[in-house]
């Protein structure tokens, strides 16, 4: 147990934005975002109307609650208790309603921001706050951590306008499982980080699985893997020390994992617990203990819109940087968005 703990403690916690240098939004992007906030577009008028309508509804609900709170003065103790319960329920109901409305507003605002970004690039960009890369794609690699519960969020997808092919996808991901310990249900987080999907420039047939978990190297540590893949020992001793590669075709594995590519992986993913999967033309990278900024725009606050825009571009730029550092992608899809 101590051995595993010591292995885990060596893993570095990281921030996806540590990979990129500071940047400023382009003038065109800034202008487009400011137009949304100042209510020049039909979309923002619609949202403002919606917010106003909710505010009116909330005022009405508060008035009813205030009226109700006067009733106990006239009647019995039982009624006081009932009224108190109603007040508590109303309080939580309102809070839930407000959160729902705010989330809906922020989602719409994010959609607008992403549309502006998409309009200024050669790609179609999609964003979803509550979705992510599919669980089936995560589970392709049998080395991935146990994920009875799979909760993705902050999903960004870049689709090439010409080929209609997904170039890059990224999401925040939490996976966990629960178990019963005596009468108590306990939750174990198995992965909390960033999950990336990048189109790989080389064609390949067989899947390749890579993990940094060295304990899986031995036959005993490779539980549940069965005959799905064999361990492939590569030539680079440094790479072998950090990564474990599994696959069915050692030649294809070497075709993908060239000496140069291994060196780049080693350089970029040093001290990071990660899982890599080469599957159906894509490279999937799961970076454990990696985070992103989760900044959402606030109602009518211009600065927060700009910060949210900056944040989402930084997210894409970090993924782009990673893909470029591995020589997987050359074209910059954020080049027209920043100064």
């Amino acid at each position: 147990m101590f051995f595993f703990k010591s292995l885990i403690s060596r893993q570095k916690e990281g921030h996806l934005y540590d990979w990129i240098s500071p940047f400023e939004l382009s003038v065109q992007i800034k202008q487009a975002i400011e137009e949304i906030v100042s209510g020049k577009t039909d979309e923002s008028f619609r949202i403002k109307d919606k917010i106003e309508a909710i505010k009116k509804q909330n005022k009405l609900i508060f008035a009813v609650i205030a009226l109700l709170s006067l009733l106990p003065l006239l009647y019995s103790l039982e009624l006081i208790i009932v009224t108190f319960i109603i007040l508590i329920a109303a309080f939580f109901g309102l809070k839930w309603r407000f959160t729902k409305v705010l989330t809906s507003y922020q989602k719409t605002a994010m959609d607008q921001i992403v549309k502006v970004i998409s309009d200024h690039t050669d790609n179609n960009i999609y964003f979803n706050l509550e979705k992510g890369i599919l669980k089936e794609e995560f589970k392709v690699n049998p080395l991935m951590p146990r994920s009875d519960s799979y909760e993705p969020s902050w999903h960004v997808k870049v689709v090439n306008k010409e080929t209609h092919q997904t170039d890059i996808e990224a999401c925040k991901l939490l996976t966990y499982y629960t178990y019963q310990d005596e009468n108590e249900s306990k939750r174990v987080t198995t992965f909390l980080g960033i999950f990336l999907k990048i189109k790989f420039p080389k064609e390949f047939q067989e899947d390749i699985y890579i993990t940094t978990e060295t304990w899986r190297r031995g036959a005993g540590g490779f539980l549940g893997f069965g005959s799905k893949a064999d361990r492939i020992v590569l030539e680079s001793p440094l790479f072998e020390k950090k990564f474990n590669v599994f696959g069915n075709d050692p030649v294809e594995a070497r075709y993908i994992l060239t000496l140069d590519f291994m060196e780049k992986l080693l350089e970029k993913l040093k001290d990071i617990r990660c899982y890599l999967t080469f599957h159906k033309g894509y490279l999937y990278v799961a970076l454990d203990k990696f985070t992103i900024e989760e900044i959402l725009p606030q109602v009518g606050d211009k600065e927060s819109y700009l910060v949210a825009t900056h944040n989402i571009i930084a997210y894409m730029k970090a993924v782009e940087y990673f893909a470029k550092a591995l020589s997987i992608r050359e074209n910059k899809f954020t080049k027209d968005l920043i100064l």
Partner: peptide, 20 residues
């Protein structure tokens, strides 16, 4: 280019098998 890369990979694989 692809064939050349595959040749390189199969050669590395062969040499690795020889070593083992």
């Amino acid at each position: 280019v692809k064939t050349e890369e595959y040749i390189g990979a199969s050669r590395r694989n062969y040499n690795s098998t020889v070593r083992l």
